[in-house]
């Protein structure tokens, strides 16, 4: 029933920020026709009267009181940084705006 084209995969790879070779996209598109048929079975029983479960436990209102806890030292905070400068994370130029 459901299937994905190479272009669909390209669009999804863009959303997921993953560079992909032509072959990779074609292969994934092929695999997905199989996988999607398998997973689409959920629709057989997912009728309107069934409530969705997004969490296994019926918990609610779990809060933390507004108290300051110690932060990491800037050294620790930046310890994994691929590049840093002036106690900031240095990253390549950001194109486009949010």
């Amino acid at each position: 029933m459901s299937s994905l084209s190479r272009d669909d995969v390209a669009k999804l790879a863009g959303l997921a920020r993953i560079e992909m070779s032509e072959d990779e996209m074609v292969n994934l598109a092929n695999e997905f026709t199989v996988i999607l048929d398998a997973v689409a079975r959920v629709q057989e029983v997912a009728t309107a009267d069934v409530k969705p479960t997004s969490h296994p436990l019926p918990l609610k209102n779990i809060f933390r009181s507004d108290v300051v806890a110690p932060s990491l030292s800037p050294e620790d905070a930046l310890s994994g940084a691929p590049a840093q400068e002036e106690q900031r994370f240095r990253v390549p130029q950001i194109l486009g705006e949010e």
Partner: peptide
Amino acid sequence: TNSKMFCGCATTFGAPPNTQTCP
């Protein structure tokens, strides 16, 4: 608030960079 929305880091405006961060 004194602390951030989802962690205990302070929210002081103008603090030195990355001194109010945690995992």
